[in-house]
Design a protein around this nucleic acid. Structure first.
Length: 275
DNA sequence: GTTGAGCGTT
């Protein structure tokens, strides 16, 4: 009975699905099963994994037989630290077959518990329409695999960062969140210690929250490029400097290739005039 | 070895 999910959905006709978020990437269904089973009858536990890598996505689905128990588990396990991480248990909003589930039990359960769910802001999910094998097929099905963080764009990164402020209902997750946030912030802000005897930390490129604005010629200008005004086809610098003035009537900043700050390294003669 | 918003499979 440990092969949850492997046998597929057993029976969702009278089961209530709970969504467990914020679980560690190493947490497995077997680990959650005893935890949730203690509070009620767990019908099935499923942890969606990535199709490409096969790793856990960080959330799991626990199916309870009764909503009563499910509700209890939600309140009991919600905020509990599992494997060193605080998990968030809540009723599944969407079902595996949303179409099939019209007003079934699963949906009903969520409606009842809507009170707490309601606090959740309807944050717009930015999911890239990344098609894996959409060659020819224009079917825009629900590609949940598009949630690839590796292919995520910067603009989306900033977006989600701002929308991340929606997480009410969890009064216990203040500590952890704060800790994490603090660390995140001091990531490149300022290193208070450890830099005494050691050499100074090199400025990371990600340090700038808005690389676009910081793309000033002098900042973006590398010692190599700067020292070789002749060798470098100053296409990037010049264009950039001018571009700032909005000289280009055709703003094609949608370069799929990326941007010029990608260090075009145009000529192999770089070392020629570089140093 | 890593990641951390968000909603599911045989």
């Amino acid at each position: 009975m440990s092969h949850f999910g492997r046998s597929g959905p057993p029976d969702i006709r009278d089961t209530y699905s709970l969504l467990v978020l914020n679980i560690t990437f190493r947490t497995t269904a077997d680990d959650l099963f005893p935890l949730f089973d203690k509070y009620g009858k767990v019908v099935d536990v499923f942890i969606p994994r990535d199709r490409r890598t096969g790793d856990s996505r960080g959330f799991a689905f626990v199916r309870y037989k009764y909503q009563d128990e499910a509700h209890k588990a939600v309140e009991k396990l919600d905020g509990r630290v599992v494997d060193g991480r605080e998990i968030m248990v809540q009723f599944a909003k969407y079902g595996p077959n949303a179409e099939r589930i019209h007003k079934g039990r699963v949906s009903e359960s969520t409606s009842k518990l809507k009170s707490r769910s309601r606090s959740r802001s309807p944050r717009p999910r930015y999911r890239d329409e990344y098609k894996e094998k959409d060659y020819g097929s224009r079917s825009r099905s629900r590609e949940r695999y598009s949630r690839d963080r590796h292919h995520r764009s910067e603009r989306e990164h900033r977006y989600r960062s701002r929308s991340r402020s929606a997480s009410p209902g969890n009064r216990k997750r203040g500590r952890y969140d704060d800790e994490r946030r603090s660390r995140s912030r001091s990531y490149g802000s300022a290193s208070p210690v450890r830099n005494s005897s050691k050499s100074r930390r090199s400025p990371s490129p990600r340090r700038s929250p808005s690389p676009r604005r910081s793309l000033s010629p002098r900042m973006s200008a590398s010692p190599q490029r700067s020292a070789s005004p002749r060798t470098t086809p100053p296409r990037g610098e010049n264009v950039f400097g001018r571009n700032r003035k909005e000289r280009s009537p055709t703003p094609k900043d949608d370069s799929p290739h990326g941007r010029r700050d990608d260090s075009p390294s145009p000529s192999p003669h770089k070392s020629d005039a570089d140093e």
